[in-house]
Design a protein around this nucleic acid. Structure first.
Length: 320
DNA sequence: TACCCGTGGAC
DNA sequence: TGTCCAAGGGT
């Protein structure tokens, strides 16, 4: 659990910046009616996750954020524990070959994240003396750190006041405030504006609010079957008050996987992760029978820096 | 902006 | 069984 105390929100940010249609007039247009119910719910129901414990530190928070990108908590937990035990500081990871990060990433998926986390550790070592930077702009400049991750690290690790907009928060706001079942496909300027307007003015409370809205989206206001009976703001939820209307607009495109280059890349990289020595071409050829696609996938892995080709047609995870 | 990038569990 | 979904980032 986080140690941030539950208190009453202080003076909210400018209500004038909020889109007039976004919040019912009766609510008070700053979202302050939502803060206490959500943060109180968080105090009572938040999961005890290792990266939320004080001993995780900023590095632990950062590692968890990389791993959690598009990946469920349950799959991250064991890899996170092994990772932090092996590389407890950025300098420890920076001293390793990037291929070891890819190997330790295991089957989390999107292995480029492992490469970027390794590159971020190098950058932290070189640019910040081995300490995860505190400033949002410095975080954003690190490899693999985008708008969400920079805000998340600044908020969760350092208790700063940032709008943290992940898929959970976007869904919670879409429903509770905007009255829609799902947020837009891509994050919009209106969503950023709304998130800033709803952010509590007090730094500590804002950080708790960020974690609490994410947790609410992850545990209660879920994509498929929200449990409104357990929601602390159900009585104020614009979508529920409107009768829970179904999603309108373009269907969110469903990504296929079987037969794609991504699947082939995954199979190729799995062979290299398990291998303790350079792998001959024939071992890679065995994972996919279509030679053109297989070659394209391998080329992609090499150009991404995930695979290092050696003389004689052998391959391994990158040493440099 | 739209698309690419892994993996596996839930329904 | 196939679809949907998961704490996004880079290009």
């Amino acid at each position: 659990m986080t140690s941030i105390p539950a208190t009453t929100p202080t003076v909210p940010p400018s209500a004038a910046s909020l889109p007039s249609a976004a919040v019912p007039a009766s609510e008070g247009s700053d979202g302050s009616q939502l803060h206490a119910p959500v943060t109180d719910w968080f105090d009572a129901h938040a999961r005890d996750l290792p990266w939320r414990r004080p001993e995780a530190g900023a590095w632990g928070v950062m590692v968890s954020e990389f791993m959690l990108q598009q990946t469920p908590v349950s799959r991250v937990l064991p890899v996170y524990e092994q990772w932090l035990a092996r590389w407890p500081r950025p300098a420890d990871l920076a001293a390793e070959a990037p291929g070891e990060a890819v190997r330790a990433w295991g089957r989390l998926g999107y292995p480029r994240r492992a490469l970027r986390l390794h590159a971020a550790a190098l950058a932290i070592q070189e640019r910040h003396g081995g300490d995860v930077p505190r400033e949002h702009g410095q975080l954003l400049a690190l490899p693999g750190v985008g708008e969400y991750t920079a805000a998340a690290v600044a908020s969760f690790a350092y208790g700063q006041r940032h709008a943290v907009l992940d898929t959970n928060v976007r869904r919670v706001f879409a429903r509770a405030v905007t009255g829609r079942q799902f947020p837009p496909n891509a994050t919009t300027a209106a969503e950023r504006k709304l998130a800033r307007a709803l952010l509590p003015g007090d730094e500590r409370i804002a950080a708790k609010w960020a974690a609490a809205t994410m947790e609410l989206g992850a545990l209660v206001c879920t994509a498929r079957s929200p449990e409104c009976g357990r929601c602390p703001i159900a009585a104020r939820c614009a979508w529920k008050l409107a009768g829970s209307p179904p999603h309108e607009g373009p269907a969110r495109r469903t990504q296929t996987y079987a037969g794609t280059d991504r699947q082939v890349r995954g199979k190729l990289l799995a062979v290299l992760r398990e291998a303790l020595a350079p792998v001959p071409q024939a071992a890679l050829d065995a994972v996919w029978d279509e030679p053109v696609q297989r070659a394209r996938a391998l080329d992609g892995l090499v150009s991404d820096g995930l695979v290092e080709p050696l003389p004689g047609g052998r391959y391994r995870l990158p040493r440099t």
